[in-house]
Every structure is written in structure tokens, then in C-alpha cells.
Amino acid sequence: MIKVENLCKNFGAKIAVNDVSFNVEKGEVLGFLGPNGSGKSTTMRIIMGYYPPTSGRVSVGGFDVSDHPIEAKRLVGYLPESAPGYADMTVHGFLSFAAELRGLNGAGKKAAIERVVEMCFLQNVVHQTIDTLSKGYKHRTCLAQSLIHDPQVLIMDEPTDGLDPNQKHEVRNLIRRMAPEKAIIFSTHILEEVEEACTRVIIIDRGRMVASGTPAELKARSPSGKLDEVFRAITLPDTVKAA
């Protein structure tokens, strides 16, 4: 569903993404790991067509993101990193806006809103404005927005950031439940999350793909079988060198 080929992105002289390639098919959950500022968000924004790539190609569901952005975006639900929302809108108004932009109207829209409100546990705050929500609720409202059209592809930038442990658990369950039907990419700093929810992992460091495989394969690289040691072994020496 998602095909990324030799993707590069420069911001001025800074190389943010350097020759990244991968595919994600339906039923796969790809975990994006990497230190802060390693290029995870930039890669996701390019897949969403928000940043144009400097070179390389991205296609979603067979549609090239640069040439057919609208067709590609229709297939995708996206949760941006900071989980933004219009502060003065109610949760219901915001979801209704997202649904209409996704082409849902009338009964279809109503059913879609009810479905995501239930999925993301927003029943108690439906009529509250977004600026009065706690961080966890705000995050889940934005997550609900990304699911409103039941997309075939889901891209989530740190979906569990700012959630309490119970909410984190729920979101991971949600990802696992949706996994068989969708192609999912999510980024995270939390290594247990990868083990729990992903079928495949990519580790990115300073714009480059430094490792890729199933969680089990990556764990096998370390004598102790712990993912965080593998992560450190791969990304730390570079960070130290850079410093």
C-alpha cells in the first residue's frame, strides 16, 4: 500500500532524510524508531504530501503522492505529531468538519462520528471545546479524526505521546485490532510499544535507515535479547561521535 523509494529531503544544507526506502502492505504494522530529530516526522510528512521530497518517490495505494496528491490523501488517515485541533471547536464539530472534508455527509457522517467517538473513548467530551480538553483527550480527538473515514492506510506520529499508561494500552490495542485490515505506520520512542504492536521495525538515525526487520530479528542482534540495547548499540555511537 505504501511504497517509499530512495527518499531524500534537505532543508537548506541540512539533510533530514537520506535515501530511505521501504514498503508497507495491508496487514502490516511498521514501527518507526529513532532518536529525536532523526527524520521520523519528516518522512511521515513527505508520505502525507505535506513536504515535497527533494528526491525519491512515494506512492500510496498506487497513487504517486507528488502527482496525484488528492487521490493518495483520500486513502490515508493521519495523526500529526502535536495532535493539533481547532481550539474553539467542539469535539463533535471538529470531527464533523473532518468527516465532511473526507466526503461523508448525512447519515454516513453521523455513523462515522459515533464510531470514532466510541473507538477513542470520547463520549464524555463530545460537546466540549478542544481548548478545554486535557492532553490525553486532545490527542485522542485528533486520533479519532484520522480514523473517521475508516482509511486503508494509517500514519501516526507518536500516537501514544502524552497519554497515561491506561490510554497507551488502549491505543496499542486499537492499533493491533485494526492491523489486519490496514497498512499502518507509527513512530514512537517507546520500545515496548514496538514489541507489542509492530510486525516490522525500522530504525532511523540522522536521516538514514540503520536497521530494519521484525522485532524478534532485531532483538536477536543483542546477546541479552533486549530491544533497547540494540537501539542504543545502533544509534548511540553515532550520537557520541557527532557530539
Binding site: 483520500r74 485541533g85 473532518a98 485528533c142
Partner: peptide, 10 residues
């Protein structure tokens, strides 16, 4: 940050 949301809609 809603600009990112708006412009990644179709």
C-alpha cells in the same frame, strides 16, 4: 499546527 492537518486532508 492545524495547517498540517488541513493540508494533509484531501
Amino acid at each position: 499546527g492545524t495547517m498540517e492537518l488541513l493540508l494533509t486532508m484531501p
